[in-house]
Design a protein around this nucleic acid. Structure first.
Lengths: 263, 263
DNA sequence: CGCTTTAGTGAACACCGTTAACCAACATGA
DNA sequence: TCATGTTGGTTAACGGTGTTCACTAAAGCG
């Protein structure tokens, strides 16, 4: 064991001190347990006291790591966004790099697959902020969320360059909508690549549809009327893709999501 | 247990006894206060104790009227569905009966308007069940929800009879999706009117899009990127309508929703 | 009038978030 | 090495929550 300096030398600023390491570790444990409580008991079942209890601590001790229950929820939400982003990115990377269409298919299916595999997480990420204080600071989650979105933005831009996907001309778009779309393209980074507003519109439309069908499935809003939502998702995917002028690729072997067998 | 009616005369079975009247009144008060707490403090701010306190009662007393907090939430959710259904139905009725297309436009805009005017309510109605016990009995809410849906189903059927709206042939639809759509058409009452599966599919697709765009707005998922979501909603509406072969009707004078001026 | 049902109370239990006062171990500078 | 300030935790406490139980007072009814 080459013993590193116990104290943190200002020169070795990159290497965290021992103190920082253990601190980071317990913070990780806190978030891990909170995350498990989230999936096991729902968001209402996440509590500082329970987490502390499970760690053999008392609740006030957690305030050394987290400024309150809201901050903890925001923190694990950010983690979950990163995790989702990673799942999507890896599905994206699993396809041949030049096959943008297949990459898009896989990325979107990965999104749905992650969502239905992690309904509790998805609910806090994409549902209403029902538990958080309305004016809580959610910037960490927002940043992680934008990291998640960037994968799709990149794919869409690629598609835009390769194919001649149809989109409305600028003049056809309502001026009010135009300013909103420009604002969107600005903050999200599409503007720097000179993506036309029409393209931004179809991107938004697609996202609305994906969001809608996945939320509907995870929130179980058609539960009493549909057992398996995968066919509907695939149908929506097909519609979207053909609307984009992209050939629909049926779900591949082993990619299928064996949805609930429930009754 | 054929116990005689609480009221003396069996003939006046329809007329509730005095006891039942006051009971119904206090139940209404309970739900009313809970509803107000919901909109003022979010769903997390609804509590039996607070409701009781405001009524000058103690919490256990409420258990004479409601079997617990979950049942109370379900009850007010059902009320809200009825209220939304009424808003949609009245918007529908505000148009000339034979102008099905306008009726549809108005009904859909009424849905969005109600949603953004009642974000807290909409969140518990259409968001994830984040607070309720997963196996709570939500049938009252489901029934009210189906009453809400029926307005749109009726409009869609009318449209289907009047116009030649394009929908895929049965053979073009994936068999798995077909069985789901048939199940849907069955339980929702479309089957009795011999609505083709293709039509059921486009209906579902439309609903997914509306649901998606409205949820997105109410849950504020594009908040950091778009100030006013109305143009996007109208664009989606236009897309949908033209896809249905229906002429898009721009928003009429006085129908517009002056959305937030926020910043 | 007497009996039964109902409405509501108070106390209690087990949770929850958060703050304040306090203490022990640690890291560091002189 | 020693003193000192920081860090990571504790206990106690306040006010909030859902829910159950035992109990009382009132209302309705034969």
């Amino acid at each position: 064991m080459t013993k590193p300096p116990v104290t943190s030398d200002p020169k070795t600023a990159g290497a965290p001190s021992r103190r920082e390491r253990v601190r980071e570790a317990t913070l990780g444990e806190i978030k891990g347990i909170a995350r498990r409580h989230l999936v096991e008991h729902g968001v209402a079942g996440v509590s500082l006291r329970a987490v502390a209890r499970e760690m053999g601590m008392t609740a006030p001790g957690l305030y050394r790591y987290v400024s309150g229950i809201d901050a903890l929820l925001v923190a694990i939400t950010a983690d979950m966004f990163d995790e989702l982003a990673e799942a999507v990115a890896s599905a994206d990377a699993s396809a041949p790099p030049q096959d943008t269409e297949l990459r898009l298919h896989r990325a979107l299916r990965a999104l749905r697959a992650w969502a239905i595999a992690h309904p509790a997480e998805f609910s806090v990420m994409f549902g209403p902020r029902s538990r958080l204080d309305p004016d809580a600071d959610i910037t960490p989650a927002l940043e992680a969320g934008s990291r998640f979105g960037s994968t799709f933005f990149a794919l869409f831009e690629r598609l835009l360059q390769e194919k001649d996907i149809p989109f409305p001309a600028e003049e056809e778009i309502d001026p009010d909508l135009r300013v909103e779309l420009n604002s969107f393209a600005d903050t999200v980074g599409l503007a720097v690549h000179d993506v036309p507003v029409g393209a931004a519109l179809v991107l938004t439309t697609c996202w609305v549809r994906v969001y809608g069908v996945v939320c509907m499935e995870v929130f179980q809003h058609l539960d009493f009327v549909m057992r398996d939502m995968e066919p509907l998702f695939e149908s929506e995917l097909q519609n979207m893709m053909t609307g984009l002028g992209v050939r629909y690729r049926p779900v591949e072997e082993g990619e299928g999501t064996s949805t609930r067998t429930a009754g």
